[in-house]
Design a protein around this nucleic acid. Structure first.
Lengths: 214, 214
DNA sequence: AATAAAAAAGGGGTTTTCCCCCTATAAAAA
DNA sequence: TTTTTATAGGGGGAAAACCCCTTTTTTATT
C-alpha cells in the first residue's frame, strides 16, 4: 500500500517531532520531514520535487514566515498540496484568514489523536476536512457581512507598535520624524478604523492582531 | 528491565498524546497516562498510588490549575515525584517560579527529541536536569538581587484588569464601587511598585504577568 | 497638465491622565 | 494603648490625550 506523505511545520521542534511520531503510527501516512518555519518549507519545496508531500500540517504562529503567508505561497505555487492548519488559536478571524489563503482543514491542538487521523484521511482522499464549528463559521462569514477586513499600512503599524510603549505621542512623533499633530491624525484615523475609544484600545488591537508582541 | 513511568500534563490533547507517543519510543520510559490540566492530575494522584509516576512532564499554561500551582502541590504532597517543566515560555521570571516550587528541570518545547530523552534519564537517575542557560539563570538569581518579587492583592489585580479595558478611571471607579480619587491612588501606587510611567505600562505588565489575558 | 486623493501639519478646546501633598478611618503591630 | 500601616478619599494643577475642523504638501489618477 502506498502511504500518503506528510510534512509538519512547527517552530517547536519537540512538538513537530512528537506529532511526526504520531502520524507515523497511522497506517496510511508517512512523514517526509519536519520544518521549523515557512521559509524552511519553501526552500525544501524548491530544492526537489521529491520533497513535495501530499499533505502539510501547518502551525500558524511561527517566526520568519508564518502559517498564513506560507499557506498562501503553497496555494499559489503548489496547488495540488493540501494544507491543514494545526494551531492553538481559536479566533474566528485567524481561522478565516487561513481558509482564505487555501487551507483545506483547521484543527485545534487540543483534539484527539483519532480525529487527526480521520482528518488526514478525509483530506488525502476528498481534498478537505472541516469540523462542524469551522463549517458554521464559514457559513456565517459567507452569509453575514464579509468581515470588515482592516488593512493597515507600514507607517500605521509602526505607530501602533510605539503606541504599545510608554512613550507619549510627542515622543512617538520624534521617533517617527513627524509632527505631533500628524501623530494626532494617525491616532484618530485608527480610532475610527479599528473602532476603539482610546490608546488602550489600540494596544489591545495591536496585540490581538499580532502587530505587537508583548 | 523496569521502565520509569511518566505522566504528561498539557491542555492540548493532541500534543500530550504526541509527546506520549514519543516518550514511549524511549527504551527506559513508559507513559502511564496523560492529563489535560493540573486538577486532573491531582485527582489521579489521589485516586490510587498506582497512578503516581516517577516523572511528570508539566506544561505551564493551563486553564483551571496551571503548571506552577500543580508543581507546588506535587512538591508538598508527593515529594518523591520529579517534575520537569515543558513549556514554550522562555521568560526568566516564569522559569524561576517553576524552579522555586520544585521543578527539577525546565525544557523549552523547541528542543530536540534526543535532548528530551537525555533530560528524562538524568532526572530519573540523578534527580535533576538543567540546561546551561537555566543553570546560569539560577546563578544570577542567587548572587544578584533577589528579584523584587512584586505581590499584588485582589483589588489591585481587579483594577489592573479594568485598566486593560477602554474604561476611563472614573468608569473603573464606578465598576469597583470606589471614589475616582481612590482609583487615582491605586494607579499611582502601582506605577511606582511596577516601575511604569503610564496606563500603557500597566497594561503591558498585566499581560506579561498574566493578570490579564487579551 | 489638471484633478483627485492621501499624507502631513496646524489651531484650539475639552476631557483624562498624571502627580503632587493632605486627611480620615480601620486594622495590625508595638 | 499608642503607634504604625494599610485603605479610602480629597484639592488642585500641569501635562497628556482626545476631538473637532482647516490648510498645505505630496502622490496618484485621469
Amino acid at each position: 500500500m502506498i502511504k500518503y506523505s506528510v510534512v509538519i511545520v512547527d517552530d517547536h521542534t519537540l512538538l513537530s517531532q512528537a506529532i511526526a511520531a504520531m502520524v507515523n503510527t497511522f497506517d496510511k501516512f508517512k512523514v517526509l520531514y519536519t520544518c521549523k518555519n515557512g521559509q524552511e518549507l519553501i526552500d525544501k519545496f524548491s530544492e526537489s520535487p521529491k520533497f513535495i508531500p501530499d499533505v502539510v500540517l501547518m502551525d500558524i504562529n511561527m517566526p520568519i514566515m508564518n502559517g498564513i503567508e506560507t499557506t498562501d505561497w503553497i496555494s499559489k505555487n503548489h496547488n495540488n498540496v493540501n494544507v491543514m492548519a494545526l494551531s492553538v488559536e481559536d479566533e474566528d478571524a485567524t481561522i478565516l484568514k487561513m481558509l482564505k489563503v487555501g487551507a483545506v482543514g483547521y484543527l485545534l491542538k487540543d483534539t484527539e489523536k483519532s480525529v487527526l487521523e480521520k482528518a488526514l484521511i478525509e483530506i488525502a482522499e476528498n481534498g478537505f476536512y472541516h469540523t462542524k464549528s469551522v463549517t458554521s463559521l464559514l457559513m456565517k462569514s459567507l452569509s453575514g457581512k464579509g468581515e470588515e477586513e482592516v488593512k493597515l499600512n507600514d507607517r500605521q503599524k509602526s505607530f501602533m507598535k510605539y503606541a504599545c510603549s510608554e512613550l507619549t505621542y510627542k515622543e512617538i512623533a520624534d521617533k517617527m520624524c513627524l509632527s505631533p499633530k500628524t501623530i494626532d491624525g494617525y491616532r484618530d484615523v485608527l480610532f475610527t478604523k479599528l473602532n476603539v475609544k482610546n490608546r488602550v484600545g489600540l494596544v489591545m488591537y495591536a496585540i490581538k492582531n499580532k502587530i505587537y508582541t508583548p
